[in-house]
């Protein structure tokens, strides 16, 4: 058993008792790497993540966390290794950002405890790492979508897990907020925080990931380094549109639909 193999899926089948979403999924994540799951909407990314997190039972195959079947682990044991940033950060009640972030500390304290001084320091630090220390006392229900997403990431940081799982962290954010959230994720990745994220936008994979897996209709069609996997034909296949890959002057790689090659579909 390799010590650096953090999370793996072997011949995983995902979905619900009444509806299969995907099968024969194999993945392997090392500690500290940034891994991007790329695929169109509805291909099963969220279901896969929930299964990897143990929130949904596997319909076949196994998920292993540091070599142990996740089905045999308690929620607390899982949460010490995996932190989750769900797609929609919603709160029914006007908790402050700090209170939300502090919730990431709950497994590190005994069952009957309140947040300690140390927890508060960790929570503040997590907020500051993401540049939103000023929002600590603000009511999260009144924050913008991008700010809420950053609060969610801060909570995952405070959880001090080895890997942060982010389900489409940029979904439903506007252009500027998408960029700001991505920049913060890049910054974290540069500091050695392990991240597994999903996105439907190839540009985000180019911007963030060291490794990437392409997903289509519940199956992983390719995985490996970004440069090897993100080929024009593959992207055209999973999105079913002609695309153009290009390098920007600053060295950043981007992917755009090739409108010239597209004919209106009737």
């Amino acid at each position: 058993m390799q010590p650096d193999r953090l999370l793996s899926a072997d011949d995983l089948a995902i979905g619900y008792a009444s509806r299969s979403v995907g099968r024969d999924l194999n993945l392997e994540l090392q500690a500290g790497e940034v891994f991007c799951l790329l695929g169109p909407n509805g291909c099963g990314k969220t279901t896969l993540f929930k299964t990897l997190l143990g929130l949904l039972p596997a319909q076949g195959g196994t998920v292993r966390l540091r070599g142990t079947d996740i089905a045999a682990l308690s929620r607390a044991e899982i949460a010490r290794t995996l932190a989750y940033v769900p797609q929609m950060q919603s709160s029914a009640f006007p908790f402050t950002a700090e209170e939300i972030v502090l919730m990431g500390r709950v497994i590190h304290r005994p069952a009957f405890a309140s947040p300690s001084k140390e927890d508060r320091a960790i929570a503040r630090h997590a907020l500051e790492r993401l540049g939103i220390g000023a929002l600590a006392e603000r009511d999260v229900t009144r924050l913008s979508g991008g700010q809420r997403q950053l609060v969610g990431i801060a909570r995952a940081l405070a959880q001090q897990a080895a890997l942060i799982v982010m389900d489409e962290p940029t979904a439903s954010l506007d252009f500027g907020n998408q960029a700001r959230v991505l920049a913060e994720i890049r910054h974290l990745a540069a500091q050695g925080v392990g991240i597994l994220l999903s996105t439907h936008d190839p540009d985000h994979a180019f911007a963030l990931a060291s490794r990437v897996a392409l997903m289509k209709n519940g199956a992983i069609v390719a995985q490996g380094n970004v440069a090897d996997v993100m080929q024009q034909e593959r992207l055209e296949d999973i999105y079913n549109v002609p695309v153009c890959l290009a390098n920007l002057p600053n060295g950043q790689k981007i992917c755009a639909p090739d409108f010239a090659a597209m004919r209106p579909q009737r």
Binding site: L55, R75, I78, A83, A92, M103, V106, S114
Partner: peptide, 24 residues
């Protein structure tokens, strides 16, 4: 009273509370 903090976490919903490490 004892579970006051965990009840806060529970208010984020079933899935999030479980992901945060609680047997929701």
């Amino acid at each position: 009273i004892l579970l006051r903090w965990r009840i806060d976490v529970l208010s984020t919903g079933d899935e999030e509370a479980r992901a945060l490490g609680l047997p929701a």
